[in-house]
Amino acid sequence: MTKFIVNGQERELNIDPETPLLWALRDELRLTGTKFGCGAAQCGACTVWVDGVPTRSCVTPIEDIAGATITTIEAVDTPEAKAVQAAWAAIDVPQCGWCQSGQIMAATALLAENPAPTDEDIDAAMEGNACRCATYVRIRQAIHNAADALKG
Protein backbone atom coordinates (compact mmCIF):
# COMPACT_ATOMS: atom_id res chain seq x y z
CA MET A 1 0.00 0.00 0.00
CA THR A 2 1.52 3.30 -1.09
CA LYS A 3 0.01 6.57 0.08
CA PHE A 4 0.57 10.03 -1.30
CA ILE A 5 -1.30 13.22 -1.99
CA VAL A 6 -2.23 13.77 -5.59
CA ASN A 7 -3.69 17.11 -6.62
CA GLY A 8 -4.75 17.80 -3.07
CA GLN A 9 -6.36 14.43 -2.38
CA GLU A 10 -4.93 11.62 -0.32
CA ARG A 11 -4.64 8.48 -2.46
CA GLU A 12 -3.78 4.91 -1.52
CA LEU A 13 -2.59 2.49 -4.17
CA ASN A 14 -2.29 -1.21 -3.62
CA ILE A 15 -0.09 -1.96 -6.61
CA ASP A 16 3.46 -3.08 -7.35
CA PRO A 17 5.57 -0.56 -5.38
CA GLU A 18 8.04 -0.45 -8.28
CA THR A 19 5.35 0.96 -10.54
CA PRO A 20 6.55 4.25 -12.00
CA LEU A 21 4.51 7.23 -10.83
CA LEU A 22 3.59 7.89 -14.48
CA TRP A 23 1.67 4.64 -14.77
CA ALA A 24 0.17 4.98 -11.33
CA LEU A 25 -1.20 8.38 -12.30
CA ARG A 26 -2.44 7.20 -15.66
CA ASP A 27 -3.54 3.60 -15.27
CA GLU A 28 -4.78 3.79 -11.67
CA LEU A 29 -5.89 7.38 -11.17
CA ARG A 30 -6.81 8.17 -14.80
CA LEU A 31 -4.87 11.42 -14.75
CA THR A 32 -4.03 11.26 -18.42
CA GLY A 33 -2.63 14.73 -19.02
CA THR A 34 0.83 13.45 -18.06
CA LYS A 35 2.30 11.70 -21.07
CA PHE A 36 4.55 8.73 -21.78
CA GLY A 37 7.35 9.65 -24.17
CA CYS A 38 10.46 7.61 -23.49
CA GLY A 39 10.22 5.80 -20.16
CA ALA A 40 13.81 6.75 -19.45
CA ALA A 41 13.81 10.36 -18.22
CA GLN A 42 15.09 11.50 -21.60
CA CYS A 43 12.23 13.61 -22.93
CA GLY A 44 10.33 15.23 -20.07
CA ALA A 45 6.83 14.52 -21.40
CA CYS A 46 5.98 12.89 -18.05
CA THR A 47 7.05 15.84 -15.91
CA VAL A 48 4.96 16.37 -12.76
CA TRP A 49 5.76 18.08 -9.49
CA VAL A 50 6.78 15.98 -6.55
CA ASP A 51 6.78 18.26 -3.50
CA GLY A 52 6.95 21.19 -5.91
CA VAL A 53 9.98 19.93 -7.83
CA PRO A 54 9.65 19.04 -11.53
CA THR A 55 10.18 15.27 -11.65
CA ARG A 56 10.24 12.66 -14.42
CA SER A 57 7.41 10.44 -13.33
CA CYS A 58 8.33 7.67 -15.78
CA VAL A 59 11.40 6.68 -13.74
CA THR A 60 10.08 7.46 -10.26
CA PRO A 61 8.84 4.31 -8.52
CA ILE A 62 5.93 5.08 -6.23
CA GLU A 63 7.69 3.38 -3.31
CA ASP A 64 10.30 6.17 -3.42
CA ILE A 65 7.76 8.94 -2.97
CA ALA A 66 5.41 7.57 -0.35
CA GLY A 67 3.89 10.48 1.53
CA ALA A 68 4.87 13.03 -1.11
CA THR A 69 2.64 15.70 -2.58
CA ILE A 70 2.16 15.37 -6.30
CA THR A 71 0.76 17.95 -8.66
CA THR A 72 -0.15 17.20 -12.26
CA ILE A 73 -1.24 19.31 -15.20
CA GLU A 74 -4.88 18.67 -14.33
CA ALA A 75 -4.65 20.57 -11.07
CA VAL A 76 -1.74 22.95 -11.29
CA ASP A 77 -3.27 26.33 -10.52
CA THR A 78 -0.64 28.60 -9.01
CA PRO A 79 -0.48 32.17 -10.33
CA GLU A 80 2.56 31.10 -12.34
CA ALA A 81 0.68 28.16 -13.84
CA LYS A 82 -2.23 30.33 -14.85
CA ALA A 83 0.12 32.83 -16.44
CA VAL A 84 2.04 30.12 -18.25
CA GLN A 85 -1.09 28.44 -19.60
CA ALA A 86 -2.53 31.76 -20.72
CA ALA A 87 0.73 32.70 -22.40
CA TRP A 88 0.90 29.28 -24.08
CA ALA A 89 -2.63 29.69 -25.43
CA ALA A 90 -2.16 33.28 -26.52
CA ILE A 91 0.57 32.43 -29.01
CA ASP A 92 -0.49 28.85 -29.83
CA VAL A 93 2.63 27.12 -28.56
CA PRO A 94 1.49 23.49 -29.04
CA GLN A 95 1.55 21.63 -32.30
CA CYS A 96 0.95 17.92 -31.68
CA GLY A 97 0.69 18.75 -27.98
CA TRP A 98 2.17 15.55 -26.57
CA CYS A 99 5.04 17.16 -24.68
CA GLN A 100 3.19 20.26 -23.62
CA SER A 101 1.94 19.16 -20.19
CA GLY A 102 5.54 18.45 -19.27
CA GLN A 103 6.74 21.72 -20.78
CA ILE A 104 4.13 23.65 -18.79
CA MET A 105 4.96 21.90 -15.52
CA ALA A 106 8.65 22.68 -16.05
CA ALA A 107 8.05 26.29 -17.11
CA THR A 108 5.72 26.89 -14.19
CA ALA A 109 8.29 25.60 -11.72
CA LEU A 110 10.89 27.85 -13.31
CA LEU A 111 8.77 30.97 -12.86
CA ALA A 112 7.97 30.05 -9.27
CA GLU A 113 11.73 30.09 -8.56
CA ASN A 114 12.72 32.85 -10.92
CA PRO A 115 10.11 35.42 -11.86
CA ALA A 116 12.28 37.08 -14.52
CA PRO A 117 14.26 34.36 -16.28
CA THR A 118 16.82 35.20 -18.93
CA ASP A 119 17.18 33.09 -22.08
CA GLU A 120 20.00 31.26 -20.30
CA ASP A 121 17.78 30.56 -17.30
CA ILE A 122 15.09 29.24 -19.64
CA ASP A 123 17.61 27.02 -21.40
CA ALA A 124 18.80 25.58 -18.11
CA ALA A 125 15.30 24.90 -16.81
CA MET A 126 13.78 23.60 -20.03
CA GLU A 127 16.61 21.60 -21.59
CA GLY A 128 15.23 18.35 -20.23
CA ASN A 129 11.91 18.79 -22.02
CA ALA A 130 12.13 17.74 -25.66
CA CYS A 131 9.59 18.81 -28.24
CA ARG A 132 9.66 16.76 -31.43
CA CYS A 133 7.61 19.41 -33.24
CA ALA A 134 10.32 21.87 -32.12
CA THR A 135 7.96 24.50 -30.77
CA TYR A 136 10.87 25.98 -28.86
CA VAL A 137 10.67 29.45 -30.39
CA ARG A 138 7.19 29.87 -28.98
CA ILE A 139 7.97 28.11 -25.68
CA ARG A 140 10.72 30.65 -25.04
CA GLN A 141 8.46 33.54 -26.03
CA ALA A 142 5.57 32.28 -23.91
CA ILE A 143 7.77 31.99 -20.81
CA HIS A 144 8.94 35.58 -21.25
CA ASN A 145 5.35 36.69 -21.83
CA ALA A 146 4.16 34.84 -18.73
CA ALA A 147 6.92 36.46 -16.67
CA ASP A 148 5.88 39.88 -17.96
CA ALA A 149 2.24 39.18 -17.16
CA LEU A 150 3.12 38.15 -13.59
CA LYS A 151 5.01 41.39 -13.09
CA GLY A 152 1.69 43.03 -13.75
Binding site: L31, T32, G33, T34, T72, I73, E74, Q85, W88, A89, D92, V93, P94, G97, Q100, S101, I104
Partner: peptide, 8 residues
Amino acid sequence: DTASKVNG
Protein backbone atom coordinates in the same frame (compact mmCIF):
# COMPACT_ATOMS: atom_id res chain seq x y z
CA ASP B 1 -6.84 22.40 -30.20
CA THR B 2 -4.65 24.73 -28.15
CA ALA B 3 -6.89 24.99 -25.10
CA SER B 4 -7.03 21.23 -24.55
CA LYS B 5 -3.29 20.94 -25.13
CA VAL B 6 -2.34 23.42 -22.42
CA ASN B 7 -4.51 21.99 -19.64
CA GLY B 8 -3.92 18.29 -20.20
